[in-house]
Design a binder for these strands. Structure first.
Lengths: 143, 143
DNA sequence: CTGTGTGCAAACTCTTTGCATAAGT
DNA sequence: ACTTATGCAAAGAGTTTGCACACAG
């Protein structure tokens, strides 16, 4: 995937291409997700955003839709410590910075790892999650 | 760390070296953790194991002790999808295989990544979590 | 119409917390 | 003795589920 921002009208065919019914909630959430480039978002944040855009989708539906999108490959999900699930619209092989102070997540460009691992006999790699946790540098002189 | 299996008598000084009071629960849990080489274990599994060994430690205490051990660097924790926190007695820089079918976790030997990332200005790397998720290979001819 | 999605609330899992009691040094 | 840890139960966060109703094709 990793599409450039998608205009309104392209979303319906996008869903249909993945065999998904184009419901109002799915269209609206997809528009929020794919309308502004790469995003890292949790279910409750997306629900809040949807609500702000006067798109009414319950939290349960947001979870359903995000999990569904993740299953078909429209988004990618991973978990950060604390147990929160983050959904990423960039489904290519890449790593993440996680800022411990702000909770922000950022793609690490150019870091690819999935093909460096040799899976054990009988298994294949489903995905590789790499999270680099960052903390504010404490200057040696300070403290 | 990454110590070879530790005998009984070494555990008390180990805790004291880390400035931790040697309580019965901590001694017992440490013995279970460090007594059999590298382990990947969740709090509830360790609690069950302790119970089986007639060491009575409540789940809350197991969490307290594991989090404390993680803080001082005796163990390392990371989260797998599903939100479970896994505690690893191997605190060196390494990656993990996660078997989706069994839930098992295995160290990947020889894979080191922490020094390959350049943190953004003002930040330093707290840790790098790499989880390679594995699924049973579905033979192309099958299905 | 028919099947599928949605919304709500309740259930569920994992983890943390508050407070009285127990134990360590 | 004094301090810190433990146990219990309850609270908390995040996510999933069951069922009645609504909507898409």
């Amino acid at each position: 995937m990793n599409l450039a921002p998608i205009s309104n009208v392209q979303i319906r065919p996008l869903l249909e291409r993945y065999g998904l019914r184009a419901t109002r909630q799915r269209l609206g959430l997809a528009k929020l997700l794919f309308g502004k480039g790469d995003r890292h978002i949790t279910a409750d944040t997306l629900a809040a955003e949807a609500h702000g855009a006067r798109l009414f989708a319950s939290l349960a539906t947001v979870y359903n839709v995000l999990n569904l999108f993740a299953e078909v490959g429209l988004v990618r999900s991973f978990t950060v410590e604390g147990g929160k699930t983050v959904f990423d619209t960039n489904t290519t092989d890449h790593c993440h910075f996680y800022f411990e102070d702000s909770g922000e997540i950022q793609d690490i460009v150019g870091a690819k790892f999935a093909d460096q691992f040799v899976p054990p006999e009988g298994y294949e790699i489903a995905k590789v999650d790499v999270v680099v946790r960052l903390q504010r540098k404490r200057d040696a002189r300070a403290q």
